[in-house]
């Protein structure tokens, strides 16, 4: 069965070269000023991460810029120590094992739900949708303790076991489900905006061709929603990868399942005084989210606003 090819509405490309870009110098200066201000903390981290421990503690990081070619001012030791730290490779792998399914699962589940809310008719559709989106505002911290208790003890109501003790604490499945549960409201909100704005004619014509909902979703909606899916992938991945709180609560501070953020926190010390290690660690943990961001960036921009700008 052939599906009609639908041009996805795209934002107009950069303006024609002859177009007057007004503002000129003033705008350029303003942009450079903002970018410079924004880069100061990042530059501080980057420079500190390459300075020897003794110097980090005795002189400001900006002083390194005064003599950038003096070899004694720079070192790779901090990165070596961060990477050599106890179980670094192990926790890096654990972070991957947490972050990849915890990114894919909420997106898949939310995409099915968003499709149903947008293009299927059923009782309770409106109430359920409001419920899902409304839950976006529940503070994550509020949910941690009850869920931890659920994972370790199950739920007993009036002597009746209504939720079994699944022994999910300290397991990957437990943290995937937690991240998935917390991520679904925002994912559904973003994906619904996009999926609902796709032209209804394509879905009607696919139905005429005899496609069922599963086929329409899989063969039509998913390929057309790549921008929105990519956008949420970046968000969710950055969030899960950088998360310390959920990982600490559900996977624990020790043991072989601890993730990168937890391991780096141990390395740095609770007071955060080992700045030379902290800064190197910050750059190491930033690397992968940035790779994801740059590789998906072109989709990111179009996906998020597709529903919102339609107005």
């Amino acid at each position: 069965m052939s599906v009609p090819v639908i041009p996805v509405p795209e934002a107009p490309d950069s303006r024609a070269p002859g177009d007057v870009r007004r503002g000129g110098w003033l705008i350029r200066i303003a942009i450079i000023a903002i970018v410079l201000v924004w880069m100061i903390p990042t530059a501080g981290v980057l420079i500190t991460s390459f300075r020897p421990e003794g110097l980090v503690d005795t002189s400001g990081w900006w002083t390194a810029l005064a003599h950038p070619f003096r070899a004694a001012e720079w070192t790779l030791e901090n990165y070596r120590r961060a990477i050599d730290a106890q179980g670094f490779g192990n926790s890096f792998m654990n972070s991957l094992a947490v972050a990849i399914p915890a990114t894919i699962m909420p997106i898949a589940i939310a995409a099915f739900a968003a499709y149903a809310f947008a293009w299927m008719d059923f009782r309770g559709r409106y109430v359920m949708f409001v419920l899902v989106v409304g839950l976006m505002v529940v503070p994550l911290q509020m949910a941690l303790i009850p869920i931890l208790r659920l994972f370790t003890q199950g739920v007993t109501l009036f002597g009746l076991r209504i939720f079994p003790d699944l022994d999910l604490n300290q397991s990957f499945l437990g943290i995937w489900l937690a991240h998935t549960g917390f991520g679904i409201p925002l994912a559904t909100y973003l994906l619904y905006n996009y999926i609902a704005s796709l032209p209804s004619s394509i879905i009607e014509s696919a139905k005429m061709d005899g496609a069922d909902h599963f086929t329409i979703f899989w063969r039509l909606i998913v390929p057309l929603s790549i921008p929105a899916l990519a956008a949420f992938t970046i968000f969710q991945f950055m969030w899960v990868w950088n998360d310390l709180l959920v990982a600490y609560v559900f996977l624990g501070g020790a043991g072989q399942n601890r993730v990168l953020t937890v391991a780096l926190r141990e390395l740095v010390g609770a007071r955060g005084e080992n700045w030379h290690l902290l800064t190197a660690a910050a750059f190491i943990s930033m690397a992968l989210p940035l790779v994801v961001f740059f590789s998906l960036q072109k989709y990111f921009v179009r996906g998020l606003t597709a529903g919102a700008v339609k107005g």
């Binding site: 099915f112 739900a113 149903a116 059923f122 839950l135 941690l144 659920l150 489900l177 679904i184």
Partner: peptide
């Protein structure tokens, strides 16, 4: 079928967000 599509999302939300709200 619609409940098959939205079901998993609702179940997870029930466990991870709605239940904690009432518990809190």
């Amino acid at each position: 079928r619609p409940y098959v599509f939205v079901g998993p999302a609702l179940v997870l939300l029930g466990v991870f967000l709605i239940y904690p709200v009432f518990n809190t």
